[in-house]
């Protein structure tokens, strides 16, 4: 992750790039001389991304997961809340019954595990995306302000970040959630975001500090550009890459945090359907009926894997050193 903070390919004088890298850049620099079409750095990153198989693996998974989250009814006809005790979880999965209610078997209350896995996706994705959006906005804004203005603003923001950073993430979220009786998705989002914004704030602050020292920022100031223009035209576009990477990877972590909280009975609660709740429900039956645990847990892992892989692929694409 620290690699991405070097926003621009090392120059000949690049101290942090090291002599070897500088030399290699010097060699390759003339290779860039006005070749072909206009090519923005974002365009280059997209090109890199397109040529990474891992990106496609995670992208396909994510599109699928988003579709499931948005339209669960398209993927299963079964109702996840219908319990038919004749189907008690003694019914094993029918692995050949694709997309049928009994594909993954039934749980202790006779509910279709397949349907529950499908309907549980929405809560997880919403929590993950919701926390990430809130955290990126709040943390990004605070980090940007602290990094750009510096001085006492930076001192205060950084101290607040330090204080929040010192609180254990899960424990803190549990304490917050304990104060709420109604555990809807937005409550969980708020609880996780409450403590989660600090990482983004730190990353944003440091990349803004790097970006604001660049000569092109000085050049814009010399032209008489105002703070808004400098911040949004020059600093932010060049400071965004590390934040994007961290946010994508963190998204997966928030999803697993939600599952952990739900498992502990502090996160989402019935009637919301969540993989964490299902994993929790399955914990007593795991010896005899591992499938009850296996499918929600597998789905959870797959989702987290997809986001973290995407984050990795994005980081590689945005890392100028590989270019």
């Amino acid at each position: 992750m620290p690699d991405v903070t070097k926003t621009k390919a090392g120059t000949d004088t690049g101290v942090d790039a090291g002599p070897l890298q500088a030399a290699a850049d010097a060699v390759l620099a003339p290779g860039a001389v006005s070749q072909g079409k206009p090519r923005s750095l974002w365009g280059d990153a997209w090109y890199e991304l397109r040529h990474r198989p891992l990106f496609w693996v995670s992208a396909v998974l994510l599109v699928l997961l988003l579709a499931i989250a948005a339209f669960p009814g398209l993927f299963t006809g079964a109702n996840p809340r219908d319990g038919d005790l004749t189907n008690h979880f003694l019914t094993k999965p029918e692995l050949t019954h694709f997309f049928q209610a009994d594909w993954f078997g039934y749980d202790g209350q006779g509910r279709s595990i397949y349907a529950r896995v499908i309907y549980g996706t929405r809560a997880s994705i919403m929590v993950g995306v919701g926390v990430t959006v809130v955290v990126t906005l709040v943390g990004g804004l605070l980090g940007m302000v602290a990094g750009y203005f510096g001085g006492w603003i930076d001192s205060i923001v950084s101290r607040i970040v330090d204080i929040f950073f010192g609180l254990p993430f899960l424990l803190g979220s549990m304490v917050v959630l304990n104060a709420f009786t109604e555990r809807k998705v937005y409550v969980v989002i708020a609880a996780l975001a409450f403590l989660g914004w600090t990482t983004i704030a730190r990353v944003m602050r440091s990349s803004v500090i790097t970006a604001k020292q660049a000569d092109y920022v000085t050049a814009a100031r010399a032209l008489g550009a105002g703070t808004g223009r400098i911040l949004f035209r020059h600093v932010l576009p060049n400071a965004l890459a590390p934040t994007i990477v961290v946010a994508t990877i963190a998204l997966g972590a928030y999803i697993s945090a939600e599952a952990t909280l739900s498992f502990l009975g502090l996160g989402l609660a019935d009637p919301t359907i969540s993989w964490g709740i299902d994993i929790s429900d399955a914990k007593d039956a795991i010896r005899d009926n591992p499938h009850v645990m296996l499918f929600p847990a597998g789905m959870l892992s797959l989702t987290v894997f997809a986001f973290i892989t995407l984050g990795d692929a994005v980081r590689d694409a945005l890392d100028p050193k590989l270019r």
């Binding site: 000949d12 660049a214 032209l223």
Partner: peptide, 23 residues
């Protein structure tokens, strides 16, 4: 430093045209 004094995320047209946007 010609490598750091131009914003890498802007086109040449935007870079040279920026003075006109500011003034």
């Amino acid at each position: 430093d010609p490598y750091t004094s131009l914003n890498p995320r802007m086109t040449v047209g935007d870079i040279i045209g920026e003075p006109f946007e500011i003034h």
